[in-house]
Write a protein that binds this DNA or RNA. Structure first.
Lengths: 269, 269
DNA sequence: CGTCGTTGTATCGGCATAGATACAACGGCG
DNA sequence: CGCCGTTGTATCTATGCCGATACAACGACG
């Protein structure tokens, strides 16, 4: 798709790489390429040749992976053509799983994020309430057990902790300000009034920045996130929705997002 | 938090590990631990000792990282206590960035996801429309350039391609079925009628499965995702919202989610 | 039965990374 | 001035991973 619009200066976290991990064995892009090559070539030997890698290594790598992930490649020696290998259904599923993880990672790198500093005021199960410059927000903390390799407490929070609240721009919904939707009708709970400070148009998806808090009252061209009293929340909106809602800079709007789409991260203080 | 409720059998993608990458240098959990240890110990030597790693290696690793990421640690030799090192502000920021990436990754591993197979019917910029078993959905494709190391086309799609549509349960909003919200008032576009098939309660956050498509009409206790005509979409809802909306199995509901929170993944066919 | 190309298996060498060790430079402090 | 613990720097060694190579086992096919 090229880069028709530059990738946003403050786009987000920057590039990253991810790998599945099971039983201590990582499944990374190299392994994915190997499995794909096996699928294309019909044999491990052919795949290794296509990739310019050692055949013996490729085979032993597949064995290591299978020890952790189960059968991935159905191998057969002897017979027509001397034998061959096919990607097992579970191998295909693993590949899909990897691709989905990769897609999520690419998304977090490409989608703007809003980060607010705050202090935890309450913890109730997986949910926590955080006091921030724009009021109290609720979000999830503690992903899934200890995914990190260092066995510290990271990922869980307690009352009084300094945390960062991360809101992905793809999770923020924009409503008309005067549209008083029945709060009982939806499960999106975090809600803030604001004013559109800027619209960065994309081809079919635009990034809308909404000034909230103290800055929302004033004219609000201020979009410096670290501003003394101004905070800008980014929202990813399709061009069609912008047209439909008639959004333009200066418009008062109401933004909302689900608590379950809000992540709390312990802040390196 | 421990594991009061087991981590959901079909929870999601499974564990993963991620690393920032800049200028060809990866910043992984090991590097994060090193920076944290420096912050705690006040010296690189002490940090290396605490981690049981070689001091010389730790120092050269920091230098390699700084070549790619800029100043991370302020080092000073001689003086009080013989010298020492402090984490630079940019080092703290990098650590925060890594933690946010980690949090997002942990979230994708812990949050259920709904995956639908479909065929691309239209592509317009970053958006694409996909025909699935439950109708036409729109979502984003192609994260941010080529984040993967294998330089293939993966990540972008074309009309006619077989793709998987990934919808994170944390992005799905549940509304009352009879609540006819003005469609012009919100930027959430994908919308489907359905019927609650199951509620998996958590401490404060529950996973609600909504049968959509053909299965939605019948009683709908069917939640087999691969069923012939039944598809279940997972939604993460706070217990409070469930109470507020009065959700229970069998209830007709309307679910919606943003196109920008929907990822399209090329399917390994 | 021999051919063929593949899957298995073992071994060797190269290369990159990390640990171990040693030593110089630095600069407050007693 | 000498002591001290740290930052810099260099070098050697161990380890692990990968490529390269070689050879046995296999089974359909001509």
């Amino acid at each position: 798709m090229g880069e028709p619009t530059e990738p946003d200066p403050d786009a987000a976290a920057g590039r990253g790489s991810a790998a599945l991990i099971e039983d201590g064995v990582e499944f990374d892009g190299r392994d994915a390429a190997l499995l794909r090559a096996v699928d294309a070539a019909g044999s491990v030997a052919g795949a290794a040749a296509d990739l310019g890698r050692s055949r013996a290594r490729a085979l032993s790598r597949i064995e290591d992976l299978e020890e952790a992930y189960g059968t991935l490649v159905e191998r057969r020696r002897g017979g027509e053509g001397g034998g061959g290998s096919r990607l097992a259904p579970s191998g295909r599923a693993l590949l899909d799983r990897y691709d989905r993880l990769q897609a999520v990672l690419a998304a977090t790198a490409a989608v703007p994020e809003t980060v607010l500093d705050g202090t935890v005021t309450a913890v109730d199960g997986e949910l926590a309430v955080v006091d921030t410059a724009v009021g109290e927000l609720s979000g999830l903390h503690g992903g899934g057990g200890e995914a990190d390799d260092s066995g510290d407490d990271r990922g869980t929070v307690a009352v009084g902790d300094a945390v960062q609240v991360r809101i992905g721009a793809d999770a923020v919904t924009v409503n008309d300000a005067d549209d008083a939707v029945d709060p009982d009708a939806t499960s999106a709970r975090n809600r803030l009034p604001g004013r559109i400070s800027r619209i960065d148009p994309g081809e079919t998806v635009s990034t809308v920045r909404i000034a909230v808090g103290a800055a929302a009252g004033s004219g609000g061209a201020d979009d410096a996130e670290g501003g003394s009293d101004g905070v800008a929340v980014a929202a990813l909106i399709t061009a069609e929705s912008i047209d439909r809602l008639g959004l333009a800079p200066g418009d008062p709007v109401s933004i909302r997002w689900k608590a379950t789409a809000t992540r709390l991260v312990a802040h390196a203080e």
